[in-house]
Write a protein that binds this DNA or RNA. Structure first.
Lengths: 108, 108
DNA sequence: CATCATGCTACGATAAATGTAGCAATGGAA
DNA sequence: TTCCATTGCTACATTTATCGTAGCATGATG
C-alpha cells in the first residue's frame, strides 16, 4: 500500500462488493484502529500522547492509521495541534462504546 | 506467537494493564476477526462456507482467528460441524451491529 | 471401494508492523 | 538571537503477520 493516498479509492479488503459495512469492518480491523478511536473518545490528544496511550506503539503504524482515519472523516488534526474525533468519528465511537460494558462482564 | 495456545495467557497487545476492554479491542482489531463475527451473525457456517463469505481469505488466518474466537468463548464448533456464535458471541455481535446502519450513512 | 465434504495444516512468498533514530517546523524562555 | 523543548511526521532494517496454494486425515454417503 502506498503511504500517501490522496483521494484514490484505496483497495479495501473484502469490500469489492461496494458494501460500506465491509469497508468499515476492514478499516476497524486494522491494528490499532479501534484502540486509537477508543483513546480519543473523550479528548483530543497530541500524536505523542496518543502514542503513550497506545502502549508506545510504533509511530509508523499510528501515523498510517491516523491518515486513514482522517481520510475516512473520523479523526481530524486540530489547528492548535492534537488529534481529535470529528462529529462523525464521535458518533462511530459511541456506536461501539457498549463494548466497554461487555468487556467488563467478559473478563476472559 | 505460537499457533497453539492451550490455556496460557496469550500475550495481548496493549492489555498489560489487565483491562478487559484492551484485550477485547486487540482481539477485534486483528485481521478478519470482525468480519468473521459479522458473517456468522445469523447462522452457523462451515469452515469453507465461512471462507467463501470472507472473500476467500487464506485458511491459515481464518483458522487462527477461529481458534482465538473459540478460546475467547465467542465462537464454537457444532458437533455436526460448522462454526456458530455462542450466546456470548451473539451478544458481542449485537453490540456492534449498529455499525451496519452507521456504515450505510457513512458511504465514504 | 470411490467420492465428496469436513476441519485443519505446511510452507514459501509477500505485505504489514515494530523499534529506534531522527528531521523540519513552531513556540516560547534566557 | 540563541537555546531548548515539543509538535507532527518520516527512514529503515528487523521481525512478525498474512497470503496463496496445495494437500492431509477423517467421516459420511453412494
Amino acid at each position: 500500500m502506498t503511504k500517501q493516498a490522496g483521494t484514490t479509492t484505496r483497495s479495501v479488503r473484502g469490500s469489492r462488493t461496494g458494501r460500506p459495512i465491509m469497508a468499515l469492518l476492514d478499516l476497524l480491523g486494522r491494528r490499532w484502529t479501534l484502540r486509537i478511536l477508543w483513546e480519543l473518545r473523550d479528548e483530543p490528544l497530541t500524536s505523542r500522547a496518543l502514542r503513550s496511550a497506545c502502549d508506545e506503539a510504533s509511530p509508523t503504524v499510528l501515523q498510517a492509521r491516523l491518515t486513514e482515519l482522517r481520510e475516512a472523516g473520523f479523526v481530524e488534526l486540530g489547528d492548535g495541534g492534537g488529534y481529535g474525533l470529528t462529529p462523525l468519528g464521535r458518533e462511530l465511537c459511541e456506536t461501539f462504546m457498549p463494548l466497554h460494558r461487555f468487556a467488563e462482564r467478559w473478563k476472559r
